[in-house]
Design a protein around this nucleic acid. Structure first.
Lengths: 201, 201, 201, 201
DNA sequence: CATGAATGAGGTTTCATTCAT
DNA sequence: AATGAATGAAACCTCATTCAT
């Protein structure tokens, strides 16, 4: 009767449902994934879904959150102790890319399938993009010193975030070939490391 | 009632429906926009919709196409006669940004609301991103000369496309403040112009 | 400018529409045949249909009528001058079968596809079946002399009408093989000729 | 609301829906009977219909099947142990007529309203008519001994099936007067018993 | 007479969600 | 906590019919 033990399949129904939702939604997209599909895949009854999530949209949101929280945490942790802003930026990108690379299905759902699927997702996506931009902006501003204007720093940080996102998106679209994101951090770092220098006179 | 020739509002029902669809979908998103909403806004009967579009999905696709065809055409036209690959890239970005800036609602729908809303949209989006990346990749490869490897060029072109997309997305999310994209091309050009140099030893 | 002349295709639009309706309805059934299908097949505009028929149901009714009027007329004409009631019955069956055999598509529609397709058809079908039964009943009563009761004559005439109908139906279902109804009249005549004798003590 | 066990009206919703469908379809015909009509009559919610039948067409088919399966089973059972082919034929007709007589509304739907209402019905009707003809044909062939040719036996069996069908149809059209089919088997038996003798030389 | 664009009522079906057991 | 039968709102789309040209 030890907690967490018991019959096989009991291993946290909430977790099972979340995983099932990821699988189904990554395959079919959010709208086409029915709650029934998800509970069937999870091996639970339809009503059980609502014991763990208040609505269908909530699982989608949980998936988006899971990925982005991991990405933000990884970035925040990776930059600690970096000697220079350039290094901070590079480590952040590397960390974020690693998080995306770890779970292609989740990345596929979050980057490709979730965006226009539900108003609540858009809101969350906006928040996350803003948070990421803010993170990056600090480094960019530091790199530029006092020399660049705020607008340039804004645009540059959006560029970084967008670039990383598109690289992951392309990788996911190609079916997430193995090892396909390992070199991306390096290239992007050099690209932006050098490029940001171009923004100061 | 076929109100005949010159009456107000006769300006091509197909066009009116497209505009109405853009308005409604940009407000509510694709899924929440009902055909009825669209035809009400357009001032036509429900069935009239299907005289111009075979299905709801078709208007969404038409909107996506409209924006992306314009962007691709503008880019292709802008780069003609540019003296250098750097210049080609810069003019392309400027042209594409101008197209997005011209119609914030359309940009909002295409960049924010359409992805993930329907499988057909995803397919189209993939095609367009590929086309844009190809366009950019030519310039990037030329800038790099024979020195950069193919993978770097791929990643760099994805970075450019993603950066432009994110800049527009951010602008749209802020409510598309007037003149907000005019300076972006300049900054991005300098950023990537200098940055690409960093990819060669 | 002679009447009936003019451009090819003018040959009575009403007739063309009727023929087109027969083709389409015999292929797809009444419900699945749209007015648009019919006018397309007839080579006229959608609205033209309503210049010749007040409603879709009217063409179906016209088709049912066409076949049954021909059958009734043929039967009535065939029995004139027959020397005996047996002969009258036989000639009537032969005549009716010949009418059905002449136009398999029409028979297919009237016997197979029309029955449950529209309430108005049912009413018409009822009338026709009654008329045919009445016709047959006269002969049956005459054959039976005063000996059979009315109920027997009713049932026998229904049997004859039903038998003829089922024979045609089976033939139509088999794809209306050539010459497949020529021998039916002979067999049915012998069957009922002898059989009716069994109804009197 | 899942009212649980013993409440009035719980008698298997599937059964209630089938009965309601029969009532509504026998009144209005298949096309005019809406799923909403049926569920209203059955006292269940609209969506409940689809818990028991995959589509509207399926209830119609279930009704057709119910009647014809009963008829075929009754005929097959009735003929067992009959001393002569004439007797087999007579008992079969009597059994089939009894089945139709038992449920006038169902007979009305199956014989009058279902044919032509949906392609799937036609297919089923064809199968059943074939099965009945085959049944009858065995007896007819036996009665004819080796003397009649195959074509005659085919036609005769079609005649029997058509006759029975038309008798029931007429009865249904007259509003299914009580006891109106009891004597029919007797008359038809004598008619065909004697008549089949006329097919051999 | 002919046209065909426009109409709009209406039906089938899906599916997120509830709740009695 | 878990179940799953039942709910019922809602949306897409079709198509018979009209009528201005």
């Amino acid at each position: 009767m030890a907690r967490g033990g018991g019959a096989r399949g009991t291993a946290d129904r909430g977790e099972r449902i979340l995983r099932a939702a990821l699988e189904v939604m990554a395959e079919r997209g959010y709208a086409a994934a029915t709650v029934r599909d998800i509970t069937d895949r999870a091996g639970v009854a339809a009503g059980t879904f609502y014991l763990y999530y208040p609505a269908k949209e909530a699982v989608g949101l949980a998936l988006v959150d899971a990925l982005y929280r991991a990405a933000l945490a990884a970035a925040a942790s990776a930059r600690r102790g970096a000697p220079s802003p350039e290094e901070k930026l590079m480590r952040s990108m590397r960390a974020v890319l690693a998080v995306f690379a770890r779970d292609p299905a989740l990345s596929r759902f979050v980057l490709l399938l979730a965006p226009g699927a539900h108003p609540a997702f858009d809101e969350r996506l906006r928040e996350v993009h803003e948070a990421l931009c803010t993170l990056v902006r600090d480094d960019v501003a530091e790199i530029l010193g006092g020399r660049g204007d705020g607008r340039s720093a804004d645009l540059a940080s959006q560029a970084v975030v967008g670039a990383v996102g598109e690289v992951v998106t392309s990788w996911v679209r190609q079916g997430a070939p193995a090892g396909g994101l390992d070199d991306a951090a390096e290239v992007l770092s050099r690209l932006f490391g050098r490029g940001l220098g171009g923004l100061v006179p």
